[in-house]
Design a protein around this nucleic acid. Sequence first.
DNA 1: ATAATATATATAAACAGATTATATATGTAA
DNA 2: TTACATATATAATCTGTTTATATATATTAT
Lengths: 111, 111
Amino acid sequence: MAVSSDILRGHTETIILRILRSKDSYGYEITKEIIEAGEGLIDVKDATIYTAFRRMESDGLINTYWGDGTLGARRKYYQITEAGIRFYNDRLEEWKEISRLLSNLIIGPTH
Amino acid sequence: MAVSSDILRGHTETIILRILRSKDSYGYEITKEIIEAGEGLIDVKDATIYTAFRRMESDGLINTYWGDGTLGARRKYYQITEAGIRFYNDRLEEWKEISRLLSNLIIGPTH
DNA sequence: ATAATATATATAAACAGATTATATATGTAA
DNA sequence: TTACATATATAATCTGTTTATATATATTAT
């Protein structure tokens, strides 16, 4: 019963960066973390995360390195860059304003 | 200094329906109303509104009629349908949940 | 007068982020 | 040994938004 995928659109990079701000992580873990926090309402496809990674890496928002390949399926870790931190901070401030404006627009003045 | 157009994506129809819930309106007026409520942060192109109208009309969310064409530029008015009201109510409840979850995902547990 | 601007609608083509479908490979539990 | 969870990757497709363009009337400034 997940929500329209357009709802996440434009927030995917911000959410990934928020997670990477506290610790390095990898695609599979980030996907699970978003779905868990979404309480059954938010779904993210793995392909969305991996294509976002490519974009963010070429934009200089994240760096990447391979985890210890000797055990289990190999993990590719991502690390937030200085530019990524700045990008996140901008988007965070933006969200605080935008969420208020969107609520005004969606709920309206009668409520 | 408007925000990424992806932020609005998926909310456009909900916002239009919220406006039409209180009174019939037309494209130009709705566009101005959204931009004004957006306090300089939210921009919507007229083409976005008009293409949304087409979609919503074929989905049965709105009906249309021409305004009095004898004065000024002709206006095409839109009216919300019963299906449109139901659609809006669903999206409104959805937004109340989603905005909370998005805040969790974007701001994180440290704040 | 006439140029500029505001009001008003419409649509084809381009853009871009998300999904679908598919491929590959390892570890673990039944 | 079958099934499932873990783990990454990308080409093709989908879809809502933007860009660009066209058309037409009303008002304001020069």
